[in-house]
Deep mutational scan, measured.
Amino acid sequence: VFVDDHLLEKVLELNAKGEKRLIKTWSRRSTIVPEMVGHTIAVYNGKQHVPVYITENMVGHKLGEFAP
């Protein structure tokens, strides 16, 4: 499973602090992992960042699938 390192670091850091804030990313190719559930990730679609709230059903899919 591929997840960009910088994105995973941000998610794990927020989980350690117990925070839930918006994470901006250009990494549409990253796979959604269970650690991301409950976070809102702003995924770049080529024009703007689209906020995507991550749920359990999204695990295993790519971030780009949810930012048309």
Rank of each mutant, 00 (worst) to 15 (best):
E56S: 14
V59P: 11
V11F: 03
L7Q: 00
Y53A: 10
R21M: 14
K17Y: 06
G18Y: 04
E9W: 10
M58K: 15
V1S: 14
V50L: 12
F2M: 05
V33K: 04
F2I: 05
E19D: 07
I41W: 01
Y53G: 14
F2A: 05
V52L: 11
G38F: 10
V37Y: 10
N57R: 09
G60Q: 10
G46D: 07
V50M: 09
Y53K: 11
K20V: 07
E56F: 13
D4L: 02
V50K: 13
K17C: 09
I23T: 02
S30Q: 02
T40H: 08
R28K: 06
E9P: 01
E19Q: 11
I54W: 00
L12V: 08
R21H: 15
E35W: 02
G46T: 07
N15Q: 03
L14Q: 08
L63P: 00
H6L: 14
A42M: 04
I23C: 02
G38V: 01
V50N: 14
E56L: 10
N57S: 14
V52Y: 04
Q48C: 12
P51C: 06
N45K: 06
L63A: 01
R21L: 14
M58L: 14
V11L: 07
K10I: 14
V11S: 00
T40L: 09
E9Q: 15
L8P: 01
E19G: 03
I54S: 00
V1P: 15
G64T: 05
V50C: 10
V50P: 06
M58T: 08
I32Y: 00
P68M: 12
T31E: 10
A16M: 12
V50G: 04
Q48R: 12
T40M: 11
A42L: 05
L14Y: 08
N15K: 02
P34Y: 13
E65N: 10
V33M: 08
E56A: 13
H6S: 11
W26N: 15
H49M: 08
S30V: 03
M58Y: 12
E13S: 09
G60C: 13
N57F: 14
D5Q: 15
S30F: 03
F2K: 04
A16T: 09
P34F: 12
G18N: 08
T31D: 09
F66R: 03
N45Y: 07
R21A: 15
N57I: 10
A16V: 08
G64C: 10
